[in-house]
Design a binder for these strands. Structure first.
Length: 203
DNA sequence: GCAAAGATCGGCT
DNA sequence: GCCGATCTTTGCA
């Protein structure tokens, strides 16, 4: 499948987050292709979104969010985990979509090894698990996912039923339901409510 | 300089 | 369900 282009990412962030469901995240690690179908995302914007890293303004860490859409924004959290985002919007408006879970596709055996846990469950259902499974860390911060040979996203088929909820792990702006997931998928990180899709309204 | 909080995970009760 | 691990970034003195 062709990969997503700049124009896909350069849109209203919650729309990008929703449209990424069903697309394939690809990581080429030491010559091997690892991939998974995106089943859960969250949208983060800038001013007006207190839950976003970009809310207080541009800093050294969040600079990528203020740049060109389609780049990887990676940060280290809780002393243990990396989180992978793709930047959105552009033209001075910060935005990023947090990739929270994928359904393992190519190279699932290596993902299990990367995770280093027993059993086949919980391979990439959570932002920290996802990056560990695919061998992604901060060295890829700023990577241009439109042109990169090692980290990019390919087109896919939009899932039939999409659920949405408040974002996970935040304490502010919980009224915004900017977490999107494939309804009924057992690969999402938590909760499988059968919430129907609603139109996305701009603030 | 220093203190505090953080878009989490895994193990244990 | 609760708790501890571990470290980066940021804000304020």
């Amino acid at each position: 499948m062709p990969r997503l282009g700049r124009e896909f990412y350069g849109r209203y962030t919650p729309s990008v987050a929703k449209d990424l469901l069903g697309c394939t995240l690809v990581r080429v690690d030491r010559g091997r292709r690892l991939s998974g179908i995106i089943v859960e995302t969250e949208a983060y914007r800038g001013s007006g979104d207190p839950a976003s890293h970009a809310y207080p303004g541009r800093t050294a860490r969040n600079a990528v969010m203020f740049g060109e859409p389609g780049h990887a924004y990676l940060y280290f959290i809780y002393g243990f985990h990396h989180c992978l985002n793709v930047t959105t919007e552009g033209h001075g408006t910060p935005g990023a979509v947090l990739l929270r879970a994928v359904e393992p596709s190519e190279g699932a055996d290596e993902m299990v090894r990367n995770r280093g846990v027993k059993g086949g469950a919980h391979i990439a259902d959570g932002p920290g698990r996802l990056t560990q499974a695919l061998g992604i860390d901060r060295r890829l911060n700023g990577e241009d996912m439109v042109a990169s040979e090692t980290l990019f996203i390919e087109e896919g088929t939009s899932p039939r039923r999409i659920g949405r909820s408040s974002r996970v792990g935040i304490k502010v702006a919980t009224e915004r339901r900017w977490r999107f997931f494939v309804a009924g998928s057992r690969f999402v990180s938590q909760g499988r409510p059968s919430t129907p899709t609603e139109p996305i309204t701009k603030p």
